[in-house]
Design a binder for these strands. Sequence first.
RNA 1: GGAGAGAUGGCUGAGUGGUCGAUAGCGGCGGUCUUGAAAACCGUUGAACCUUCACGGGUUCCGGGGGUUCGAAUCCCUCUCUCUCCGCCA
Length: 429
Amino acid sequence: MLDPLYVRDHIETVQQGLANRGLDATAELQQLATCETQRRRLIPAIEGLKREQNSTGDQVARGKRNGEEVQHLYEVSKQRNQKIKQMEVELDAVERQRTLILEVLPNLPHASVPVGKSAAGNVVVRTWGEPTALDFEPKAHWDLGPQLGIIDFERATKISGSRFAILMGAGAQLERALINFMLTLHTTEHGYTEILPPFLVSSATLYGTGQLPKFETDLFKIAGEWDLYLIPTAEVPVTNLYRGEILDGRLLPLKYTAYTPCFRSEAGSYGADVRGLIRQHQFDKVELVKFATPDTSYAELESLTANAERVLQLLGLPYRTMALCTGDLGFGSSKTYDLEVWLPSQKAYREISSCSNCEGFQARRANIKFRPEGAGKAEHVHTLNGSGLAVGRTLIAILENYQQADGSVLIPEALKPFMGGRERIEAVK
RNA sequence: GGAGAGAUGGCUGAGUGGUCGAUAGCGGCGGUCUUGAAAACCGUUGAACCUUCACGGGUUCCGGGGGUUCGAAUCCCUCUCUCUCCGCCA
């Protein structure tokens, strides 16, 4: 949620920022301005009446103690009270409308974000490694996996329907090894604290990170009388760790990493990446989340992104880092770097991580603050999150980049200790 | 699923329908004392919003919502959540 007071005083800037995202919010901002005017008319009026009401109450109390006649005050007070109630109903409607508008407006892009309309406007920040050179025609993972007997798409469809997959044998082991490898790296070398959160969360939690109310159709909701949804990312439960709390600023930044499965209905994405593991209703991800002070959050975004890149580097997977343009930013993000890994079969870089600084956008929704130096006025923290990495896509990248002419797949050096010393995955004869 | 108890400030915990934002203790912060620390003592210690250049002033908030009343932390209704016991269960 944008800061209502900031929006009030910077309508033009906000309008321009949202326009850069491809959103014409002229009408909404106009409505907001109207709400603001009415609000500022009603609040002082109501407060003035309440003040009179309080003083009348004191008069009654004092009068009664002294045995004076106070009946005549009752009627005045009663009428004033009706007036207050009437204005409060009005104010309530105004504030409701204000919230309704604010909660569906996306975050403003940071000044450093390139202006652009779509993914085509994203900018390559750096490239690591060279696209893997294979002296044979690379196979796609959806062929490799089944041929090696480590991925079964067909039986997954029988069990759960489309966009699910089963990992078996060395495939399941590889997924587990990747999770373990990533968590170990982030906790021991990058200083993150590991979290294993609930995979089901309440609507209040999803509101805090911005999935609700606008993106309910992307989520799986639990049937029945439950206010529970499957998490679409660990960002949701982990960012909500401190919802409604005021943190000691001296403890910031706080850094957390969490492995969770993620569940997305991907409504509206039919037709895209229908084959293979790329886009599934359920996938594993190791997430990085930070709570930072506003003055350090952009430095923290750089280091968080570097932490995610480190995973790819250690696995020897070629990738590039993209700065998303204004038109491609996610709802809650002020600035995002996407990491894209090279997939030989597609001869293209594909997204494997997305690292964002949401500034105070989620913190305002979730009411997460900090007190600088442990004292003084509390301000909203900045929240950051990034994949470190999407595990299923990492598995794809390993299969495709480490495939050999004979159809086997080598295990990257850094992963061997997590694979029980296994050197390669071969077809089960 | 059955039965019961509760929700008050960072924590613990008082609170008769009328100067209660709320007693007290702990914790935190500042100070005195000390070479330093501890102890002791003194002081201080919530949030949101409105208004003001500022100092300041004001309103609201005792789980959420509604009601009774001139007036509600206190009475009534309702919702949510937590805890305890029993049953079932990984």
